[in-house]
Design a binder for these strands. Structure first.
Length: 264
DNA sequence: ATGGTGGGTGTCCCA
């Protein structure tokens, strides 16, 4: 079974690319982030026509997460337990969607962007991650052999090699100790980065800013991850980052991240 | 040539 995650940065502007990618990638499950669409605007039919069941959660032009599956899609859940809210008026943002696909509990996650070290959005991001940790720990406590994949755009570079220049990021988010601690807490709760062993760094990234010619200059960040529960991690046979998809006109600023699981 | 972006409900906000 092949699963993947991809921040598409607007499904409406990227639908041709997503269709073409699905047609060539032999993917069974694809989690999307930043669909930037309401459910009404989401192109369900074009994806169903490719053989996928589709669950989407989108409230407005921001955020938005989806799960596509051709191996079943059951028990869809919008948001995780006690997920923090944001905004005025206070409300849940469309940042987490769970679904069971082929026996794997997939969570498509779009972790809040902290914006800057002084911004209240950073505290929101840390709180959101702490509650995700609590929810994910409980899923494993309830069933230690559960196959769970926490996938998506984490907006964190956990190691120094995950950014192109630590000096550039010295006063920026994504690499700060509190953010890295929040990521580590989820790892310590039992979830493993299953891609890194198959795509070692340095210089291996999943995101390149549109600005400043970051992609051709190979100045990226590794911020999109697939974290597997122990039972899922045991099934991983390979993984890759589809850097080719970042090339050319009309690319998302993120590349798809792909994981291959042994059949049961 | 020392600059160079691209989404969205757009002339501002968000990444």
């Amino acid at each position: 079974m092949r699963i993947a995650t991809w921040n598409v940065n607007s499904i409406r502007s990227r639908i041709d690319r997503v269709e073409a990618w699905l047609q060539r990638s032999d993917c069974d499950v694809l989690a999307l982030q930043e669909t930037k669409a309401t459910d009404e605007q989401f192109p369900f039919e074009r994806l169903r026509a490719l053989g996928y069941e589709v669950a989407h959660h989108g409230l407005n032009q921001w955020n938005g997460v989806a799960v596509l599956s051709r191996v079943g899609l059951e028990d869809v859940q919008v948001g995780f337990e006690n997920m923090p809210m944001w905004g005025d008026p206070l409300g849940a943002e469309a940042r987490a969607l769970g679904a069971t696909c082929g026996g794997v509990r997939i969570w498509s996650l779009y972790v809040p962007n902290g914006r800057s070290l002084e911004d209240p959005h950073l505290a929101y991001k840390l709180d959101w991650l702490a509650h995700l940790r609590d929810a994910a720990a409980k899923w494993l406590a309830d069933n230690p052999s559960a196959q769970v994949a926490l996938v998506g755009d984490w907006n964190i570079a956990p190691q120094d090699e995950d950014v192109w220049d630590m000096e550039f990021f010295a006063d920026k988010t994504h690499v700060s100790p509190p953010e890295r601690a929040a990521f580590s807490a989820i790892v310590e709760a039992g979830y493993t980065d299953v891609v890194r062993p198959h795509a070692p760094g340095p210089g291996v990234y999943t995101y390149w800013d549109y600005q400043q010619l970051r992609f051709p200059k190979r100045q990226g960040m590794r911020i999109d991850f697939v974290l597997g529960s122990p039972a899922l991690t045991a099934r991983v046979e390979g993984a890759s980052i589809d850097r080719e998809e970042r090339k050319g006109k009309g690319a998302s600023d993120h590349a798809p991240v792909i994981v291959d699981l042994a059949n049961l």
